[in-house]
Simulated scan of single mutants.
Amino acid sequence: MTEAAASLPLPDQALVEEATKKSGLIWVRGTGPARALWHVWHEGAAHVVGDGPDEQPLPGLTAGSTAEVTVRSKDKGGRLVVWTAVVSELAPGSEVWDAAVRELKGKRLNAPDGEAMTERWARECRVLRLEPCRASTEHPDGSLAAPPLPTSATTRRPIPAALPRLLLRRGKRR
């Protein structure tokens, strides 16, 4: 544990760790809008990988900056805790990078290159450590709902003409 995490009061530290470990996604806001990121909790911090081909974007997250991390409840979806993180980039091939990547590799779903993804991460991606330094369980007034961010992964096309007939026919068979 580093100095930043040690500065959190013990109850806040425990809440941040448990909530973040159990959440599949965290919402991270650097200098731009908040983004949902998959992560792993390892050695007192959340770790994310991205900014490479076939990986999640990490805009606004730079080494030495801070980011706001919002953690939601896995069962109800409501916000549990918001914490401020110190962002650091791990150097590929270092001990801490290797340890974080071992954890990340186990959580990465549908990697296009399977076992070779760690070499690709070392060449083309960034692995960031988000270490908590301040936490808050206070909830702001009003909704924080926002329209989804634009992405090339969105495919909005008209439904096929035959789909309604197929769905209606399937319901009549019962």
Score class of each variant (00 low, 15 high):
Thr62Gln: 15
Val86Arg: 10
Pro59Cys: 12
Val81Cys: 12
Arg129Thr: 09
Pro140Trp: 02
Ala116Trp: 10
Asp141Ala: 05
Ala146Asn: 12
Leu128Ile: 14
Glu95His: 06
Leu168Trp: 08
Arg72Met: 13
Ala111Gln: 08
Ala63Gly: 04
Pro158His: 10
Leu144Asn: 07
Ala146Gly: 07
Arg72Tyr: 11
Thr62Val: 12
Leu168Asp: 13
Arg120Leu: 13
Leu109Phe: 11
Glu95Gln: 09
Asp98Arg: 12
Leu61Cys: 03
Met117Asn: 01
Ser65Ile: 00
Thr70Trp: 00
Ser143Val: 04
Val96His: 10
Ser143Leu: 09
Arg165Val: 06
Lys105Cys: 03
Lys74Ala: 15
Ala116Ser: 10
Glu131Asp: 09
Thr62His: 14
Ala135Gly: 04
Leu90Cys: 08
Leu58Met: 06
His139Met: 14
Val96Lys: 11
Ala111Ile: 05
Leu149Ser: 13
Ala67Thr: 10
Ala135Phe: 10
Pro92Cys: 03
Trp97Cys: 04
Leu61Gln: 05
Arg156Ala: 07
Ala100Phe: 02
Leu80Phe: 03
Ala63Ser: 02
Arg129Gln: 14
Leu104Tyr: 05
Cys125Met: 15
Gly77Val: 11
Lys76Arg: 13
Arg120Tyr: 14
Trp121Ala: 05
Pro158Arg: 14
Asp98Leu: 15
Arg129Val: 03
Glu89Lys: 00
Glu119Ser: 07
Asp98Val: 11
Glu138Cys: 11
Pro160Ser: 14
Glu138Asn: 08
Val127Gln: 06
Pro112Val: 10
Arg108Lys: 09
Ile159Glu: 11
Val101Pro: 07
Ala116Cys: 00
Ile159Trp: 09
Ser152Glu: 13
Glu131Trp: 10
Leu80Asp: 11
Arg165Ser: 15
Ala146Trp: 11
Met117Leu: 10
Glu89Leu: 00
Pro140Val: 06
Thr155Gly: 02
Leu166Met: 04
Trp83Thr: 04
Trp97Gly: 05
Arg108Ser: 12
Lys76Asp: 12
Gly78Phe: 11
Leu90Tyr: 00
Thr70Tyr: 02
Val127Asn: 08
Leu168Arg: 13
Asp75His: 10
Ser94Asn: 09
Arg134Thr: 01
Ala162Cys: 10
Trp83Gly: 04
Asp98Thr: 13
Gly60Val: 10
Leu166Gln: 15
Thr70Phe: 00
Gly77Asp: 13
Val87Phe: 05
Ser88Trp: 02
Leu166Pro: 00
Glu138Leu: 03
Thr70Arg: 04
Ser88Val: 00
Ala153Thr: 01
Pro59His: 11
Ala135Arg: 12
Pro160Leu: 12
Ser94Phe: 07
Val101Ser: 06
Pro132Trp: 02
Gly60His: 09
Cys125Ser: 15
Arg165Gly: 15
Val96Trp: 06
Pro160Arg: 13
Lys107Ala: 03
Pro112Leu: 02
Ala161Asn: 01
Ala100Asp: 04
